Computed example of a mutant assay.
Amino acid sequence: MSWIRTRPRPRPPHLRPPWWHLVEAEARAGAACPTRWSSPPSTPALQGRLQRSHPSPLGTEEQVPYRMAVHPRGDGVLCAFPNGCRLVRWESPEGDDQHSLVLRSDQEALVKLNDVGLQLAVSFSGEGSILATGGEDGHLRVFKWPGMETVIEEPNAKTSVKDLSFSSDEMFLVVNRSSGPSRVWDLKSSEALANLPREQGEIFGFCRFSTKSDNSQILFVTAMQGDYGKIISWNTSSWTRIGSKKVTRDVISAFSVSPDGTLLAIGNIEGSISVLGSRDMRVVLTVKKAHLGIVTTLVFSQDSRALLSTSFDSTARVTSTESPKSDGISLWSMVLAIILGILVYYYMQHKEDLLAMLPQ
């Protein structure tokens, strides 16, 4: 599930706003069906009319895609099947209905990933110029896109790849495995740059880079340690820990960082979601039982004002991440004014008695 920006066909000026599209890939038995939700930029994702496209499912010969990655510039959806990967491209047909989609499978784009087995992690870089996949067999593959020239290849039959994340400047790639440390790769030199060690009892889960207000970057890694789920932050110059906080007692099943870098979101196996401030990791919003099943994916909108979550229960939910705004006097101000009013009234009614109690 990913937000991409696309431009419509030439139209009159008043009908030419760029649209943000949320591409959510539905996996059905024997079919892969990317679904596009659209919202104009002038309308917040929450309040705007998210218009859903209904493309025809693309037959996949009874195979269900386990992982999907959407190209950020609209170059298709990579689908990871048990025996390898395929690329599904979408096209908007001619006509006035800009929300309809026509799907086609590109058989030539991913020849190097046709028979590589199940990939547990697939991701495009932020600009879409690099593709990385990590297999159940532990094999890490990184390619330039769309030429598919190999950048990094690391066979590893001992530990499966759990998650991977690109830095926004496309200089680094972090890879989490089922055991052992996280590894940081330099994408320019194609060399391993650092290993991020675990503390005793930690099991790393998700990893995400985030850009701070001064344009420096920080790396967040989720981990389970005993009965607690925690978020660890890492300095991306020295690759040392700079913070860690326990944030939940449930297993973290999904993780996301907002595009503006101010918010983090976690989903758990109980179907609840929480939004935290990235600086102090304090919870600013919790939705208990947002879903009836495990939260599988979390994605912030491009303006960081909304969070979309999906679940094994086949539901999708959009949650506002904005702080409620006051339309006038705040509730606490009103309560304080009432209390002061009562005190003044009591004083006026019992002024003489109160003065008599004072020492002469």
Rank of each mutant, 00 (worst) to 15 (best):
L118V: 04
K188N: 05
S178R: 08
L298R: 08
R279N: 08
L110I: 14
C85P: 02
T297V: 12
L308W: 04
D313M: 02
Q360S: 04
S178E: 05
K158I: 10
Q349Y: 07
P17V: 04
G128H: 10
L120F: 10
V299P: 04
R28Q: 12
W37K: 12
A25R: 01
C33E: 03
L196E: 03
Q107T: 07
T297S: 14
T319M: 15
A254N: 12
S256N: 13
R141G: 05
S125A: 14
P155E: 00
H71M: 04
R86S: 12
P82C: 11
A223C: 15
D169V: 01
E62Y: 10
G341L: 05
S100L: 08
E352V: 07
V64Q: 05
T296K: 13
T150R: 14
T150G: 10
D260H: 10
L87E: 07
P17F: 04
V318E: 04
A29H: 10
M68S: 14
W145M: 05
P155Y: 02
T321N: 07
D169M: 09
M224N: 12
V257M: 12
S105W: 01
D280T: 10
W332C: 00
K158F: 13
S53W: 07
N268F: 09
D96Q: 15
A109Q: 04
L355P: 00
V251F: 15
L292N: 11
L358S: 00
W239M: 11
T262A: 15
Q107C: 06
A290F: 01
S237Q: 14
R208D: 04
L173R: 07
V111L: 11
I130P: 05
P34W: 03
L140R: 06
G180D: 03
F255M: 13
V257Q: 02
T222M: 06
